[in-house]
Simulated assay, not measured.
Amino acid sequence: MIAGPSSAWQALKRAWLLYHLGDERFRFMWDPPPPDEWVALDCETTGLNVHSDQIISVGAVRIVGRRILASQRLELLVRPSRPISPESVRVHGLRERDVAQGLDSDDAMMRLMRFIGSRTLVGYYLEFDVAMIDRAIFPLLGMGLPQPKIEVSAMYYDWKSRQLPPYLHGASIDLRFATMMRELDLPLRNGHDALNDAVMAALAFIKLRELLGRA
């Protein structure tokens, strides 16, 4: 079988990235992912500036098929080198003394990368979390996370759009997390805890795959 242009380009890109990989121990992230597996991910941070703020908490859980593997979860506290903004403390409740005994950033990121492996990432407004992680791992790898990413709010938007009559296509859709969970008839756990948020994103992902006919 002859590889098409797309697969040839992907192979070339993979080879180029592996050649420039800063730490050979993490080559496994470019392996073919386990079939029908994903990792739902969430982070809490010192603030919302992706250029200067830092991760203080990571929560992740593995998804296999239609199941969330609660026994295969990751929950880490990370010790930052900068203060946590008061606005962020009001959101996630983590104070500097709460994370003072946390892991250093490099150790936490290495544990996270091993937990993820080559699995596709799932999350709610995942772009922010990935940007924070990419900045933290760049000194280790010389690049960001290579795994594909799936945004559950985009899946939810697709599902809600299908329910609109033609004359309302393109109308604004409420993408707030609480609204999404309510519309999907899913439990809303205590918010702004990284592991809880990752589990809720995983629940939404599984439900939306079924509703969109992707399961």
Rank of each mutant, 00 (worst) to 15 (best):
M1G: 11
P5R: 11
Q10A: 15
A11R: 01
W16K: 09
L17S: 05
L18Q: 04
Y19R: 10
G22W: 03
R25Q: 14
R25H: 14
M29S: 03
W30Y: 11
P32A: 00
P32G: 00
P34T: 02
P34H: 02
P34R: 07
P35W: 05
E37S: 08
E37C: 15
V39N: 08
V39K: 12
V39H: 11
D42I: 01
C43H: 04
E44Y: 11
T46S: 03
T46Q: 07
S52A: 04
S52P: 00
V61N: 08
G65T: 01
R67E: 12
R67M: 13
R67P: 06
A70E: 12
S71D: 07
R73E: 07
L74F: 15
E75Y: 14
L76F: 13
L77D: 01
R79T: 13
P80W: 05
I84S: 10
I84G: 13
P86L: 15
S88V: 10
R90I: 11
V91Y: 05
V91N: 04
V91H: 04
H92I: 09
G93V: 12
L94E: 13
L94S: 08
R95N: 14
R95S: 15
E96C: 14
E96G: 12
E96D: 15
R97Q: 15
R97L: 15
D98T: 14
G102I: 13
G102P: 15
L103P: 08
S105T: 12
S105C: 06
S105V: 09
D106R: 12
A108Q: 00
M109R: 06
M109P: 04
M110K: 10
R111Y: 10
M113S: 00
M113C: 07
F115M: 04
F115A: 06
I116N: 02
S118E: 03
R119E: 00
G123K: 02
Y125S: 09
F128C: 06
A131G: 01
M132V: 00
I133M: 10
D134N: 09
D134P: 00
A136K: 03
A136M: 00
A136V: 05
P139Q: 02
L140A: 08
G142M: 00
M143C: 08
L145E: 03
P146R: 02
P146K: 01
P146S: 00
Q147Y: 11
P148N: 07
K149G: 02
K149C: 14
E151V: 12
Y156I: 10
Y156S: 03
K160R: 12
K160C: 10
Q163K: 11
L164D: 10
L164T: 09
P165H: 12
P166V: 13
G170K: 09
S172C: 14
D174P: 06
D174W: 07
L175K: 14
F177M: 14
A178Q: 11
A178S: 12
M180Y: 06
M180C: 04
L186A: 04
L186G: 07
L186V: 06
P187K: 04
R189S: 09
A194E: 06
A194G: 03
L195G: 07
N196W: 10
D197L: 13
D197S: 05
D197M: 11
M200I: 06
M200S: 12
A202I: 05
L203M: 14
L203F: 08
A204L: 02
F205S: 06
I206W: 04
K207Q: 05
R209Y: 04
G213I: 06
A215T: 05
